[in-house]
Computed example of a mutant assay.
Amino acid sequence: MYQLETFQSGTLAYSKAGHDKGKLYVIIEADYEYVYLVDGIYKKIDSPKKKKIKHIQIINEIPESIKECINSGQKITDIDIKRAIKQFLK
Rank of each mutant, 00 (worst) to 15 (best):
A84K: 01
K44S: 09
D31V: 11
E29H: 13
S65C: 13
Y14D: 09
K90L: 10
A84R: 01
M1E: 11
I27C: 02
I56Q: 02
I58H: 01
G18C: 09
I58C: 02
I70D: 06
I79N: 12
E64A: 11
K67G: 00
G73N: 03
C69M: 12
L4V: 06
I66E: 00
S72A: 12
I81N: 04
G40T: 13
S72G: 01
Y36D: 04
I45G: 01
D46W: 05
K44N: 12
K86S: 11
K51Y: 07
D46S: 13
K43C: 06
Y14E: 09
K23H: 09
L37S: 08
Y36P: 03
N60P: 06
Y32I: 12
T6Q: 14
G40L: 10
K16D: 05
I85V: 10
I85T: 07
T11N: 09
N60Q: 14
C69S: 12
I53S: 04
M1C: 10
I76A: 06
P48H: 00
P63D: 01
E68I: 11
E5W: 08
D46V: 07
V38N: 00
G18M: 07
L37R: 04
G73L: 04
L12Q: 03
K82F: 06
I81V: 14
T77H: 08
V35R: 00
I70E: 06
Y2H: 14
A84N: 03
L12A: 04
I85F: 08
V35D: 01
K52E: 12
K23N: 06
E68T: 08
S72M: 12
I58V: 10
A17V: 06
D78C: 04
N71R: 14
G22S: 08
I76P: 01
I66L: 14
I66V: 09
H55A: 12
Q87H: 11
K54Y: 11
E29C: 07
E33L: 12
I56Y: 03
A17K: 15
D80T: 05
K44D: 03
F7R: 00
C69T: 10
P48K: 00
Y2T: 14
I27P: 04
E61W: 06
N60F: 09
K50D: 08
D80E: 09
E61N: 09
D31A: 09
Y42M: 12
I56F: 02
E61S: 11
A30I: 05
P63T: 01
I70A: 06
T6H: 12
L12N: 00
L37P: 03
Q3C: 13
S72W: 03
K44Y: 03
E68R: 08
S15F: 01
K52H: 13
I28T: 13
M1G: 15
K90D: 12
T6N: 15
S9T: 14
K23A: 03
S47Q: 10
K52D: 05
H19C: 08
G73K: 04
I53F: 03
I79Q: 15
I81R: 01
D20E: 10
I79M: 13
K75I: 13
V26S: 05
K54P: 06
D46E: 14
